[in-house]
């Protein structure tokens, strides 16, 4: 059986995911609380309300950010 691997970048790092993945699944897999981050996919905002239905595609470039201390 051939595994459908999904190759994409997250915060500039190359990642391989096993099979179809939504943004919600990716965040859970990485260990992040979806309520505390924001996600950009190919330079477009992914609204938090759509994490569960946004399926990732090969080659996607994702940015996952949060708030940190700043002036």
């Amino acid at each position: 059986m051939i595994e459908r691997m999904l190759s994409l970048t997250v915060n500039g790092e190359a990642r391989m995911l096993a099979g179809p993945t939504t943004v919600a699944m990716l965040l859970a897999g990485l260990g992040f609380d979806a309520r505390k981050v924001a996600v950009e996919r190919n330079e477009a905002i992914v609204p938090r309300s759509t994490y569960g239905e946004t399926w990732l595609s090969p080659g996607d470039a994702l940015e996952i950010v949060h708030f940190i201390g700043g002036g």
């Binding site: 997250v10 915060n11 500039g12 790092e13 990485l30 260990g31 992040f32 981050v37 924001a38 940015e63 996952i64 950010v65 949060h66 708030f67 940190i68 201390g69 700043g70 002036g71």
Partner: peptide, 13 residues
């Protein structure tokens, strides 16, 4: 004021 930065993928906790 706060800044916006990438999360640390190596340390999600």
């Amino acid at each position: 004021t706060v800044a916006v930065r990438r999360v640390n993928l190596a340390d999600p906790g």
